[in-house]
Design a protein around this nucleic acid. Sequence first.
DNA 1: GTGGTCTAGACCACG
DNA 2: GTGGTCTAGACCACC
Lengths: 131, 131, 131, 131
Amino acid sequence: MILKIDFESDLPIYIQLKTQIIEGIAAGVLKEGDPLPSVRQMASDLGINLHTVNKAYTFLKQDGFITVHRQKGVVINSIHGRRVNEDYLARLHKDLSSLAAEAYCRGMNEEEFKNICTELFTKFKSQSPKW
Amino acid sequence: MILKIDFESDLPIYIQLKTQIIEGIAAGVLKEGDPLPSVRQMASDLGINLHTVNKAYTFLKQDGFITVHRQKGVVINSIHGRRVNEDYLARLHKDLSSLAAEAYCRGMNEEEFKNICTELFTKFKSQSPKW
Amino acid sequence: MILKIDFESDLPIYIQLKTQIIEGIAAGVLKEGDPLPSVRQMASDLGINLHTVNKAYTFLKQDGFITVHRQKGVVINSIHGRRVNEDYLARLHKDLSSLAAEAYCRGMNEEEFKNICTELFTKFKSQSPKW
Amino acid sequence: MILKIDFESDLPIYIQLKTQIIEGIAAGVLKEGDPLPSVRQMASDLGINLHTVNKAYTFLKQDGFITVHRQKGVVINSIHGRRVNEDYLARLHKDLSSLAAEAYCRGMNEEEFKNICTELFTKFKSQSPKW
DNA sequence: GTGGTCTAGACCACG
DNA sequence: GTGGTCTAGACCACC
């Protein structure tokens, strides 16, 4: 999987990493059991510091997306490690609410907004169809 | 309109302000032409720094949500000031994509996700129905 | 509150910090709303790096013992932020089980073990009696 | 006795080994004089490194739980090899104190805590009742 | 060679 | 001045 860091972005690098890996999992590019490069490897690949990669991995581990296996290294978790819980739902609602508010304020149609949402979601679904 | 600052949130205060004002507009609590308190007033009301309020207003002005009149003070713009443009669409897609990816990874159903999205959007629509 | 780092210990410094702060809360030395020194301050007080302090604070924040208030700085949480949940209970059982096993293996009496446990617990209770 | 390694645990494998063997002794599954597999054997059984098993055995030997005979191999010691001494008591107090502190901070009742402690201890007692 | 820990020093966003 | 982020370089425990 190819990761791309935008050094100009206002988002911290470790957040970009985390997001892209989650999108990779959603898109089926990364599947259960797939290995991720070691922190050192990925850091040198991307030209960033190993601590930055480590931070991204730590968050992913915490949220159940990956686990650090003492022999296999860093591997993608099965979906069972990362269920929808209350905290997540609250966060999702808050984030979506502000996006919806701005879209509505800018005059976006209900249909348009719904279409964008479902389009993005189904894109992932069609790419990794088997869960 | 009542604004509530969460001083323990990880979001900067000025972002919270900006978001809540946009949500206020979307919910119809703030309508075209409505005045907003002056920077000083709002800062003292909320017990925060002048600069912080100023920063929020600056962003809102940039995005066309408000106008700062020397005499009338700060007022809400009409919708025409803030159309959907390319930059905004790109940003929206990126933000929604990462939210959709995480939702999908956590096993959320397509229906569920769509429902949350439309529910949040229609909530605004029903509250400020006339555009 | 006085913190003491054992640089010879096999426990990481940030764990020692975290543990001592929790014990401070349990002992009533640190109460709800009490401020903790800034990372820089505590780091220089203890002669350690600010990142190490930061790590301890991050864990404490995660577990609901403290929150970072944008104006008041770092403050001790009310008890409501840190309830007993399933994950914690599982961890507690595992830790206690191995301690109990070793105590039993070394020939410790059931009474002795129980007494040590309750004695330590009631020590905290008597020191911060009001919850 | 069946040992189970969790390769994704944050505890080192040799600690897991050591702990499980002690718990095995406490539970009466391993009794005085019982043999333990050789380093090589156990390593290949569990699919782990020789050094790792060796390290676990070394610690167990140090603490008097096992003896390594050149001919009889590794055997479980009698209880007399591993008495409660001052060092151990100090360690136990420290470990239990931090567990008790966190339990108390999370609002756990004195009764609850005592019950968990005694329950875990008596579990071992009932399984290997005769010392 | 791996991740975990610690240090040192730097810049920036925030308030 | 605060915490957040990033870098660089180092040592150690683990396997």
